[in-house]
Nucleic acid binder design. Structure first.
Lengths: 343, 343
DNA sequence: GTTAGCACTCACCGGCATCGAGTGCTAACA
DNA sequence: TGTTAGCACTCGATGCCGGTGAGTGCTAAC
């Protein structure tokens, strides 16, 4: 049915299209990729491939381009993974280890490095808080009318929240209250806040009950805030440089989509949160404006729990082997850093 | 020299060009804006205006468009400031007060609201840390090998830094160390770190000297990190919708420029950091790719010190009165929140 | 000083012919 | 039966051409 020769022709079409972004004809294949058969034979095979839906003819007298289905076959069966050249891997590790102690820096610089290396769009996102556990909270005095609440999760994500208070408690009280909140984290973040806990915390710390309630609600709100994750995007300009988006309307649609945080998050959620590298081709993603784009994403983790996601967005004809190799190297590096959890 | 009639013609040209983005001819002015003189007379006046460099003829047989110099005159002398309709002001206040306790939320949502209301690009940035004073630091335990350092400035900006430590001190020690660091902030952030301070902190807290040095260096690095400010950008898509950027190359240049954090920061720095609203027209900004764009920016402040900046980026023919009105309302709202500093 | 009239310029648009890449089909060949 | 050469056909891209209309500058009259 799908003989070896057909596969090699499909591969040739895809490889050429990745390079040139132009429809490719039978004669070109025969000349450039010496498969040892004539253009006429290739024409017959291409006709079959088109019937199978693996390639498409954009208009009657043009060459063929791969369809989404064709790419799917390619990444699933044909593509061979590639190792990154050492220099590139070194750059990645340099970026990662140079930003160890700043999770936001790490994400930002990683996204930057990826977009620079691939010439596609890179996207990085922190994990959602909800679902993971809170490891620690801390109240920090700012001034007489405001207090900073710091929340740290198992995945080392940090959230800050400034609380307004009529008369903010002094540093000592805040320290005791922090301690108390940490001891009772399960209750505070749990379903129904038992009333006894408030009283207990008040007794222990000496803080106002109203203030304690504010704190408790704030901690809960942090956990509940699904959309409160930083998303880092880099390389939008690269998309505009691609020939397939020289149509201004398409370009506008893409930029609009990338301009919208919620779209990005939807995109990153698509295809689930499991481990490993996932490739989402063309219209497989849920976002309509992103038809001509593919997404390669990988989740990184800390202590077995998902800790964030990194993705590469490019045209469907993107260089999948290269992008996958880069993504794998990065996730490995980040896991290495996050993983040294000796606690 | 620059008679009243000439000014009215210039104003008509600018107003029309703001609306239509098309070169405007003498006949149109005569018909649409009944100034009471014929198109021939207007032609003569326009010829004079062009000689003065206030308007430009894009090509021989086209109408005139305002030059950067023309806009300058307009915003400096002709433009009358406008008050925002109540509904719009209400939206702004709602956004601001709905995000009081999250400085990053506040910036993000404000930028979003501004870009939605103006149909231009909105940009918001935290202040640089350096130059302002640190109000408080706090060490928070994460796990056995890492500690979170929280730094709060006078402007309520918060920075987090995860420190790696071979054996992280326990919560109690960290609390004492935090206290000590806060007492000695001036020395720690000052020019040369006196060696006695380290020993003193070690004695007081019981922490390792090596760890204390790490902490001190980290606090100093936060102060030194000029570029460590969050920049929020919203509405890039709006730029692409403008007719003047239907040329793909121009669009690419703009998106590239906006894609680059450093460009944005340069842009926001241009024109100094003083109070009030500042309008930077066309090529007056330092960034070359931004020739066709104007920036309106305003610094907001807390307790008399600069606390960040908000800007609107649009085409040179942007609706300046509207943008200025929106910006003023926002800055007022933010100052109101940040200003309630009873400490 | 203002206005009417006029010749001139030039971007824009639609129509038209040309060109070339690529296909599908048929017939011949191994 | 699979492969190949040849050929007519399709259709987007390119470039040329003339018409159209908006707008100007200049001159002469009011």
């Amino acid at each position: 049915m799908l003989g070896d020769r057909k596969l090699r022709i499909l591969e040739a079409i895809i490889n050429d299209y990745i390079l040139t972004a132009e429809p490719i004809g039978s004669r070109t294949i025969a000349k450039k990729y010496n498969i040892g058969i004539s253009s006429a034979t290739i024409r017959n095979e291409m006709s079959d491939l088109e019937e199978m839906g693996l390639i498409i003819q954009p208009h009657a007298s043009a060459g063929r381009i791969p369809s989404d289905k064709g790419y799917r076959l390619y990444v699933d069966a044909l593509m061979e993974s590639r190792d990154l050249p050492k220099e590139q891997a070194d750059i990645i590790y340099e970026v990662i280890f140079g930003n160890i102690n700043r999770i936001d820096y790490l994400m930002r610089e990683t996204a930057r490095a990826v977009s620079a290396m691939t010439n596609y769009v890179a996207i990085a996102a922190e994990p959602t808080i909800s679902g993971t556990n809170i490891r620690h909270t801390q109240l920090v005095p700012i001034d007489s009318s405001s207090v900073l609440l710091v929340v740290i999760t198992d995945a080392k994500a940090v959230r800050n929240l400034v609380l307004a208070a009529r008369d903010a408690p002094c540093a000592e009280v805040l320290a005791k209250l922090s301690e108390g909140v940490n001891e009772r984290l399960a209750e505070i973040t749990g379903a129904g806040l038992p009333p006894g806990v408030i009283a207990e915390l008040a007794a222990k710390s000496g803080a106002d009950e109203a203030f304690i309630i504010t704190v408790a609600e704030s901690v809960r709100s942090v956990v509940a805030a699904e959309d409160d994750r930083r998303v880092y995007l880099s390389g939008v300009k690269n998309i505009l440089a691609l020939p397939e988006f020289s149509d201004l309307d398409r370009a506008r649609a893409i930029v609009s989509a990338l301009d919208e945080r919620s779209t990005l998050i939807t995109l990153l959620e698509s295809g689930g949160g499991e481990v490993g590298t996932r490739i989402i081709i063309g219209s497989e993603n849920g976002v309509d404006h992103m038809r001509g784009l593919s997404l390669i994403k990988a989740n990184y983790r800390r202590g077995g729990k998902p800790a964030g996601v990194i993705g590469i967005i490019g045209p469907t004809r993107m260089d999948y082997p290269m992008a996958v190799a880069i993504l794998r190297t990065i996730v490995q590096g980040i896991n290495e850093i996050l993983g040294d959890d000796r606690g």
